[in-house]
Design a protein around this nucleic acid. Structure first.
Lengths: 246, 246
DNA sequence: CGCACATTTGATCCTGGTCAAAAGGCGTGG
DNA sequence: CCACGCCTTTTGACCAGGATCAAATGTGCG
């Protein structure tokens, strides 16, 4: 067998992302209902979870792994318009399709509900509805941040900006690192990465070697990065380093 | 006086955007409550309605005119990350600031609520909450569409794509045009437009003259455009012309 | 009419794209 | 354990689309 996925949690109480997913505002009684209606499904790296413009049958939360939202033009040009990490919500209620493919960037596990079932839950649970609004608003803010990166930043800033984004999302959930440095593991291939930041693989690669030579990052392996100084990275990304204060 | 704005409607019943704004799903009783709490405010072209990272005191709906959401870097580079047209909702509940300036691109009128007041309304009205979720999801879809344009499209496609987007939004509200052609009035200066599609004013202008020479568009005045054939425009934008069917 | 500002046009430069080849990783099988 | 082949990533040489700098033209308003 190609790959063993971690066994998904059996109960919501054990769920590692329980406190930041769509269900995080639900009380015990609501949670009990969700528990009976959810089901887990695993996908392998490269599998398409949802096809653009095709009927959307399930909605759900990413429990582990990484997925990308891919928008592709007829001639093959591709832009990744969203990166889904554990606890992110995938799909859109009250719509029978979405405009992008959802693709497993790594092996991953989904906690799913059938779409009509979830829609009914939503209409009966203000906690769920309000949490989904907050998460959607956060996604919108992130998308707009990314528009600035795509529209106005240089290749070097784009790569540094991507790494900064990953660091921020790590910090958000794991807390501040003890020292000033930090370890990072890339969840994307160079090709995905390029499609996410609006460059070619070649320029992306070149910028990586540049940042390495300039001491901003250190590659411990193909996928693992050590960042000796976060402030330096944020500066290269032309981002305010608010994540370091507060 | 520099400019007379249209008098805003006195009652929600007269409101021109009543059926597609945040309040469109409210019943008469809820509407009556909103009526007592709303207030109108006019802004002149160029005025900043909300400053990025500054306390957000009001939320509301754009009644008339156009506003842009501007994200600006320290060195002056600017990207417009959203274009607000009448009926769009401005601001974010449960957050005390936003990451972008909101700027009046034309003279405009807002239908506003004080933020804490609106938040209370939201928590008591599923109709309001659910409508806001739908609108936010639509904004997210639009932002992701735009990421594709910013990250992967050529200058010519970007300009054509901008015009296509305007046409679609017009059609959405006014219905299909009778003939195959359509009139369009640009709500943005060249500079705003360039900042929206991630180009300089110079390239934007060059692409306009190109599209003009190629017969895709005809400029009747600086701001007014005639599009003889929509399908041609959509093709230049590398967009599927779904808006023409259905 | 004349001034201020927006837009267009022109000439040149440079960042990132393209095409091509080399180097590095990794799994399979001898 | 190593050799082979496949695929990903890096590096190189060259090209081109859009940026930059500068000037001309157009437009609205006092």
């Amino acid at each position: 067998m190609k790959n063993m996925l971690l066994a998904p949690p059996q109960t919501c109480g054990d769920c590692p992302i329980r406190h930041r997913a769509i269900c995080s505002k639900c009380e015990q009684d609501e949670l009990a209902v969700l528990e009976t209606l959810k089901s887990y499904k695993d996908y392998e790296r490269g599998e398409t979870i949802v096809w653009a413009e095709e009927p959307l049958t399930h909605l759900g939360t990413l429990v582990s792994g990484v997925a990308s939202l891919n928008r592709t033009l007829e001639d093959g040009r591709c832009q990744i318009v969203g990166l889904m990490l554990p606890s992110d919500f995938i799909g859109r209620p009250k719509r029978n399709s979405v405009a992008h493919d959802v693709v497993a960037a790594t092996d991953l596990t989904l906690c799913r509900f059938e779409k009509p079932v979830f829609e009914k839950l939503l209409s009966n649970s203000p906690a769920l509805l309000s949490r989904l609004l907050t998460m959607t608003s956060d996604d919108l803010d992130a998308a707009r941040d990314w528009m600035l990166l795509l529209g106005r930043k240089t290749a070097r800033e784009k790569v540094a900006g991507f790494l900064s984004m990953l660091v921020r999302r790590n910090i958000q959930h794991d807390g501040m690192p003890s020292g000033r440095g930090i370890e990072l593991s890339l969840p994307l291939t160079r090709s995905d990465l390029a499609n996410y930041i609006g460059l070619t693989i070649e320029t992306t690669s070149r910028q990586f070697t540049q940042l390495k030579q300039d001491g901003i990052i250190e590659l411990t392996s193909q996928r693992d990065i050590h960042i000796p100084n976060l402030a330096n990275l944020f500066r290269e990304a032309s981002e305010p380093d608010i994540a370091l204060n507060g």
